[in-house]
């Protein structure tokens, strides 16, 4: 394997990782909003969140990405032309990729966070209210620390699936690990070696994530004894 190509593929790891982190951040925000919407007492909010999660989970990631990158700008441009303005809207591949991943994994995070919120003992919330804590304080001090423990397994799973899903943005032209591996494979005629290298990169992310997140899980489980074992 020529060293130059290996270097260029591994250097693109930064693109893959930054895409993953940006999408994760947005997905967590969407997931939080979605979880609270699903558990809210307002019917329209609950309905919106339910429609959102079931639509997103019914469409493949790749199709979703093509919809966001090609179809949404096409629709917007039709409107713009209808208005008689002289401009064309185009999304950057990175932005469209991050937005799609955030939209998809926001739906999965919604389910994860909703499950975690529902499993926090009701007495905790009632006690906090009885103490007269303000709502933001209840969230930061009572709900969030307990949610961390309950949501971590689902969160870990979503993160692992998402880092792998970032490989799809190479199809939009983002120069991530997969894109560079494909370029190297075509230039050198050694596709197997370079795709193995790309696979190894994702496997390494998986391994490191599992290690780090199991440490975090241990930290948040410190107060809970597992009696079942």
């Amino acid at each position: 394997m020529p060293g130059g190509y290996v270097g260029s593929i591994l250097a693109a790891g930064g693109v893959t990782l930054s895409l993953a982190f940006v999408s994760l951040l947005l997905a967590v925000l969407i997931g939080m909003a979605g979880a609270f919407a699903k558990l809210s007492s307002s019917r329209p909010l609950r309905m919106t969140a339910t429609v959102y999660t079931s639509f997103i989970r019914g469409i493949p990631d790749l199709v979703m990405m093509l919809l966001v990158f090609y179809s949404v700008p096409a629709l917007l441009n039709q409107w713009v032309q209808g208005m008689g303005w002289d401009m064309t809207i185009e999304f950057s591949p990175f932005g469209a990729g991050a937005a799609t991943l955030a939209l998809i994994f926001g739906a999965y995070m919604t389910e994860t966070f909703r499950g975690a919120l529902m499993n926090i003992p009701k007495g905790q919330l009632e006690a906090a209210q009885a103490y007269g804590l303000a709502r933001p304080r209840i969230f930061w001090r009572i709900l969030l620390p307990q949610m961390m423990r309950l949501a971590l397994p689902g969160f870990t799973n979503n993160w692992l699936v998402m880092t792998k899903a970032t490989a799809l943005v190479s199809l939009l032209g983002v120069q991530d690990v997969m894109f560079r591996a494909r370029g190297a494979a075509e230039a050198t005629g050694k596709p197997f070696s370079f795709y193995i290298l790309a696979g190894g990169f994702y496997l390494a992310i998986t391994a490191v994530s599992l290690f780090v997140l199991s440490r975090v899980a241990r930290r948040y489980e410190a107060g809970v004894k597992e009696l079942a074992r």
């Binding site: 792998k164 190479s170 997969m178 494979a185 197997f192 696979g199 994702y202 496997l203 998986t206």
Partner: peptide
């Protein structure tokens, strides 16, 4: 299972479809 669950399906697909021809 670790290898196939730890790498993207797209990589696996390209590895088998394009990669095998290397040999």
């Amino acid at each position: 299972t670790l290898v196939f669950r730890g790498t993207p399906l797209l990589v696996q697909l390209f590895l088998i479809y394009y990669g095998l021809a290397q040999f």
